[in-house]
Amino acid sequence: MTSTSSSDRIEIDVEINGRRRAVVVNARDTLADHLRNDQKLTGTKLGCEQGVCGACTILMDGAAVRSCLTLAAQGDGRSIRTVEDLSEGSSLSPLQEAFKKHHALQCGFCTAGFLMSATELLESNPSPTRDEVVEALSGNFCRCTGYQTIVAAVLDASEQIGNANG
C-alpha cells in the first residue's frame, strides 16, 4: 500500500463532454476541483462540499454523482458530462427551455445540479410521474424557487422530448 502526500499528482485518462484526454490531477483534488480549476468548466457549482446540496452534480457514465465527493482520480477511464454539454449548438435543450419557460431558476447557482439530476432521470425514465420527479430531485437544494416550477419544468420537458421522438 502506498501513501499519498498533499503534493502528489496522478495521471488519468478521462472523457469530458465528448473529448477524451490524458490529464494530470492533484491527488487531493475532488472531481469538482478538477473540472472547475483545471478544465475551467465552472458551470458545475460547489454549494456545500459535503455531498448534501447537489449543486455539484455531474453525470459519470450516465449516472448522477456528486463531484464534490468524488476524487478527480476516480475519473480515470470514465465518461463525464457537465452542464456545459447540455445545450445543442447555440440553442437551449428542451430541458433547459422548459426551465426558462417555467421560471424554474432564479439565482441559477443550483441550476446545473438540477439539470444534471433531471437529465439522468429523463434518460432512464422518459415519462416520469410527478412523484418520480420529486423522488429523483429531492437531493438537490434550491433556496430561491420553492421547487414547484422545477417539477413543472421537468414534467414539461419529458413531454416535449417525448413528442419530438414521436
Binding site: R36, T82, S87, Q96, G108
Partner: peptide, 19 residues
C-alpha cells in the same frame, strides 16, 4: 416576459464570484 438572464445561467455560463 421570459428572463433574459436565463440562457447563460442554464448553460453554465454564469460568472459567479468563484468562477
Amino acid at each position: 416576459v421570459p428572463r433574459s438572464e436565463d440562457a447563460k445561467l442554464l448553460t453554465g455560463r454564469g460568472r459567479y464570484l468563484n468562477d
